[in-house]
């Protein structure tokens, strides 16, 4: 008789309304859950940039051959990089602009960085939706502010790459860069 009662109790324990020893089921299922979730980690992180992409994230540019008013295009993290030596006129005009009145308030000095007189380094990526603005190449449309013009949606940037008109929210991005020699900059 006693054994039958035990039996009934055990039956109950194993059925749906688990009461007795249910901690072990919870522990087992949650451990399996943790295991399953940790499998997601490599599956997700494999989509992050690979080691060779990360390693190629700095770019050296020789600026010695750039004449005033001229730009060269490089590649930085798979995106176009504009490096321009500004003319004296451009510098004077840009310094005269009241930065406070702009959509994205930045002075020319903010954009050039300390100890840099005339080398403007910026990503050639319109801050609206990522097209490459015109204006860095010879004879390209420089837009209404004599700087850069994005043909996709009509954003106009001035000679310092600051947004003046059109849908772009911010100025062209100035990446981190430093002079490694007098004539070479390292971007990134």
């Amino acid at each position: 008789m006693a054994s039958t009662a035990d039996n009934a109790k055990a039956e109950e324990g194993a059925g749906e309304g688990v009461r007795r020893r249910d901690w072990i089921h919870i522990a087992a299922v949650s451990t399996a859950g943790v295991g399953g979730a940790s499998v997601l980690f490599p599956l997700v992180s494999q989509m992050a940039p690979t080691a060779d992409v990360l390693a190629a994230s700095t770019t050296d540019v020789d600026v010695s051959a750039i004449e005033p008013g001229q730009s060269i295009k490089g590649v930085f993290r798979d995106q176009p990089l504009f490096v321009k030596r500004m003319t004296a006129d451009e510098i004077a005009e840009m310094k005269a602009t009241d930065a406070g009145s702009l959509r994205d308030a930045e002075t020319l000095e903010d954009r050039l960085g300390e100890g840099n007189e005339d080398i403007l380094v910026q990503l050639g990526v319109c801050t609206h939706l990522g097209c490459v603005p015109l204006g860095a190449g010879e004879g390209e449309d420089k837009g209404e502010f004599n700087g850069y013009f994005c043909p996709c949606h009509g954003s106009h940037y001035d000679a310092a790459g600051r947004i003046r008109k059109g849908p772009a929210p911010t100025n062209l991005v100035v990446p981190d860069f430093a002079f490694t020699t007098d004539t070479t900059i390292r971007v990134g």
Partner: peptide, 27 residues
Amino acid sequence: GFLLFATLLGFMSYKTVWASKKAEKKN
């Protein structure tokens, strides 16, 4: 290490689930 730990928990869970059937058999 993790898998063996999970396997042990799974085995204990399995034993608990089947306890009633084993008891029935014994009885």
